[in-house]
Design a protein around this nucleic acid. Structure first.
Lengths: 240, 240
DNA sequence: CGCCTTGTTGAGCCCTTTCAAAGGATGTGG
DNA sequence: CCACATCCTTTGAAAGGGCTCAACAAGGCG
């Protein structure tokens, strides 16, 4: 199953998760073109609302967040191109977190999994990955120090965006403000700032104008103690 | 659907999640009696292993954990009576975390969801709850201070054990050592100890001989800023 | 050009950790 | 029933990592 050059990042990701057929791609393609747009900072889904239908992130970044009564907030996970929203298997599900667009986000309806077994498999693998990354996030917050948290999160982005074909020479668009990074990593933006400077000085990364470059991902991974993530015994086609 | 007095905590929990029928209960009951035992401190599942079959915790406490290369470890979530292990919807799934018994744990095989729609619904709701608690755990670690973390976790136990009928007069068995609490909450056992003493002095709780009593759950919930958790628009039958 | 968001910097404080040691429980074997 | 080992809890003193509260610089953008 060769992946075509012309595929969008979202389709590339999904097809890599479960080896989608040409038929599956044909199912996905129309939605990719017709989906709707959520402007930056808009809520895509609000905690406690009933979930209506599953969607796919076509482009842009969004975030799942919990908002505390006193104004504190915590980012739970990031949603990148090819990620799924609102897949539930029980009746009348409620959203357990709010989803906010961090950039302009293009969304489309996800074809029902019942239409294709391989598509259903891709959804299931995607969801398993979601959960694995949630668990990593817990470990990050519970046991890593500030510098390790930042490095670990950047490596997660690198890994996930690579799957969607959005990484070149270890560099990729990373549209998060330092305050957003703080909300994700349980730190203040002030401290994020200082640690980023330190990591730049130590040669771990470059971050300028919304573009992040990791100097040497494997070295950074060793430095922050990051282990690779696997959810399937059949590994997805590795990035070229 | 009246719940019988004789039900085990595990069955009580599952039947409350989706209003199980007598047929479902009959499906579950044999397993509850024949399941096998995992001794305290034993691994029930190891990260990276292939998952074989779904199981139900009949009694006892277990924990999902990530172990870091340098010996640090982080508890991801607790598994209490009636909780499910190893439900996956994609082919050849791998365990993304290690599961360790914290007490002696009785386990049984979970009947296949295909045998009953209401049972499948109970599994799905259970899994949605799992995820909701994972998200709460992230918020706990990212945004709460030590005292809030402890209070919030104890309220989670209170809530979940109530569903299984294991709480009387706001008191329940809580077999975690202070070191285990530290591993769950991203704190050292020394600090857990000091904060527990503080909370005892402030009249929030009593903890002695493995039994925890919350003086006033709603008051504590307000104090630590805890919001209730809902995953379904049809609320489960509330505890009597 | 001026506004508004984002990034940068400093000083002091506070929550949590570290390191060490002692005290209580609990269980096992003699 | 005591001796002993092991695990768990408790306590103290000192250090450190990250926070707070400013204030200011630097970019985008209309």
């Amino acid at each position: 199953m060769r992946v075509r050059e012309t595929q969008s990042p979202a389709m590339l990701r999904l097809s890599r998760l479960a080896g989608l057929t040409a038929t599956d791609l044909a199912l996905l393609e129309p939605g990719m073109l017709t989906g709707h747009l959520a402007r930056s900072r808009r809520e895509i889904l609000r905690e406690g609302e009933e979930i209506t239908g599953a969607q796919i992130i076509v482009s842009g970044w969004a975030v799942r967040a919990r908002l505390l009564a006193d104004g504190r907030r915590q980012f739970l996970s990031f949603l990148l191109p090819g990620d799924l929203i609102g897949h539930c298997r029980h009746s009348r599900p409620l959203a357990v977190s709010t989803i906010v667009a961090l950039t302009d986000v293009r969304l489309c309806a996800a074809p029902a999994p019942s239409t294709s077994a391989s598509l259903a498999e891709a959804y299931a693998v995607s969801q398993a990955l979601d959960e694995a990354y949630l668990l990593s996030h817990i470990t990050r917050l519970g046991r890593l120090n500030a510098q390790e948290r930042i490095g670990d999160l950047m490596l997660e982005f690198h890994e996930r965006l690579t799957l969607a074909g959005l990484v070149t020479h270890n560099g990729f668009e990373m549209p998060l403000t330092q305050e957003a990074l703080g909300d994700a990593l349980g730190l203040t933006s002030v401290h994020i700032n200082r640690m980023l400077q330190l990591m730049r000085r130590e040669g771990d990364l470059t971050l300028k104008g919304g573009r992040l470059i990791l100097s040497d991902p494997p070295v950074l991974a060793r430095k922050v103690g990051r282990a690779p993530i696997h959810v399937t015994a059949n590994p997805p086609q590795a990035e070229a």
